[in-house]
Structures are given as C-alpha cells and as structure tokens.
Design a protein around this nucleic acid. Sequence first.
DNA 1: GGAAATTGTTTACTAACTTAACGATATGAT
DNA 2: ATCATATCGTTAAGTTAGTAAACAATTTCC
Lengths: 158, 158
Amino acid sequence: MASLRKTDRRTEDEAHIEAPDLEEFIGYNLKRAYVIVQADFRRALGEDGFAPRVFSALSLVVQYPNVTQSGLARMLGIERSGLVAIVDELEGRGLIKRTNVPGDRRVQALVPTAKGKTSYVEARAVVRAHEDRLLSNLSTEEKATLLTLLGKIRSHED
Amino acid sequence: MASLRKTDRRTEDEAHIEAPDLEEFIGYNLKRAYVIVQADFRRALGEDGFAPRVFSALSLVVQYPNVTQSGLARMLGIERSGLVAIVDELEGRGLIKRTNVPGDRRVQALVPTAKGKTSYVEARAVVRAHEDRLLSNLSTEEKATLLTLLGKIRSHED
DNA sequence: GGAAATTGTTTACTAACTTAACGATATGAT
DNA sequence: ATCATATCGTTAAGTTAGTAAACAATTTCC
C-alpha cells in the first residue's frame, strides 16, 4: 500500500521520477526534441555558422533563385518584416544579392552568388552529418516514419 | 529535356513548389510541426490561458508537490533563473505557493493550492482536446509511434 | 483615374530564454 | 571549529526570434 502521510515530501530522487502527464503530450515532446536538435545544429555549425533560419533561407534562395522576399517569407512561414534581417545577413556575407526585377519595381528578387552556392553545399553537408550523428539511434526507416508523421502535422500549415 | 535557359526566372508557382533539401531535415520539420502545435495550444487555451511552459510547470508541481524550484527547472530543462517568472505567475494566480522547508532555509518547496489542482485538471482536459482535434489525422498507433521516436531524440537530454 | 492591394522596410514591441552576479544558507575537508 | 566551496532563489542585463503596425513606392483592379 502507498504511504498515507499527508506531508509526503517526495523531493528525493527527483531526477529519476517520470512526469506521466506531460510525457503523453505530443506538443511537449516536440518542443523538447526540437530544443535538442537545434542546440546540436548550432554546435555543429559553430560560432560563425548559420543559425537554423538563415540556413533555411539560403537553402531556398539557392534552390529557387529569383524568389522574392515575400515569397520566401511565405515558404518559411514567417512575416516578411522578419525576413529583412535574415536577407541582410546573407547579403552582408556575400552569399546572395537583391536584384531588380524588370517589370515590377516593388520587388527585389533574391539570387545566390557563386560563393553562396558553394557555402550552401558545404553547410548542407555539415547539417546532414550533424543529423546523422545525433539521430544515429534511429534507423533509416524510423527517420522516414518520423518525417511522414511530422508531415501529417505540417499538413495544417496555411 | 529541361530548359537550358540561364535566366530561368521560376518565380511563377512558388506556392506549389516543394523545397526538397529542407524537407529532408528532421530539425526543420520538427520546428515547423512544433510551431503549428504550439499555436493551436495557445488558441485552445485562450487569451488568459496558460502559456505552454506555464502549463508544464503547473503539471509538474501538481504531480510532484514540494518540488523545489531548482528541481523543477531541471525537469523542464531550463535555468532556474528562468523559472522565477513562471512561478511568480502561478503564485500570483493563486495556483501554487512557495513554502518554507524546515531544515533548509535556502529552498522553497512548491505546492499546488486546491484551486491549482482543479485548474490543472481542467486545463489538462482542454490540452488533450486540442491535441485530439489537431492530430485527428494521426491514428492512435501513429501518435504512439511519434512519441516513441521523439523519445529517442529526447534520450540525448542532459 | 481613383481605390485597393502588394512590396520591402523600419520601428516598436513581446516571449522565452541565457549568463553573470548577489546574499543567504548549507556542506565538506582538514 | 573554521574556511572554502557549493547550492538556493533572485535580480539585472542581454540575446534571439519572432510579431504587428505603419510607411512610401509601386502595381493592379474596377
């Protein structure tokens, strides 16, 4: 039978106790998992490496040259005002440039520079290595399953 | 054969184009999925409802009464300085209280009030309903699989 | 041609942290 | 016993990653 003491302190062994209620929530587990992956990403890319969102933006500019900032913001799921600093950083590093689009003087198409393209390919290799290492306790199939399940959640985007 | 034009603009159809490189990364998908779940959590709990981290803290205090702030911070994976505002909010709402621990005057054990316990049970029901609704396109088995896979990532905690 | 929408940008704000320091207290080594 | 060390909760200041609102310039829609 369990103890009946009203003043059960239970402060011993905190580190080993599970937290049943929280552990059942997908949201809580997503957050905790993301914190780990993101921290390892930053460690892998180093002090002057890309932050995750900057890497993502560069990836899209390399893959979709001439994307507009509005289009890029939409793809990343953030406000276009929030994209300005990211584009500033990438342009400041000489990895992309803002170019005029003939026919619409409001928009500035984003194109990767040669340096931007090679930097991206290098960074992508580092990111792949980071995920391979960090997630080496997941099989290839498990990783594919995880992507599928996360994709089902992401189906609620927009 | 694909187009050979060097100046291929490709700005049309942005909304429908996939982003192959990014989509293969677990970290990117985790982030995008978490943003959706977290936003729906906040919508479900409403204007004056708990923020996710406050809900998590209350959950742990209810389940582990007399936990210390340091212990709680460790469980949540954040610095104890960051917990002060969370505990302030919960105490300010009359849901938990800081109590003296005889034998160690440095620590303040956290205990839920009666109101805190009932508020938690109610909030937990709302959170469960939010996840059930949002994740209704995942089967029970898929949700269990997802928790297992996220748990494998979380095995890197500490 | 005039109203409405869109683009990139700035400014101001917020949330959710971190790091470093602090005084108070407790613990451990000798 | 005392001195060094560690721990507790807290504050203060800084960082990161955003959002919301407004703006001029430009384009699109009747």
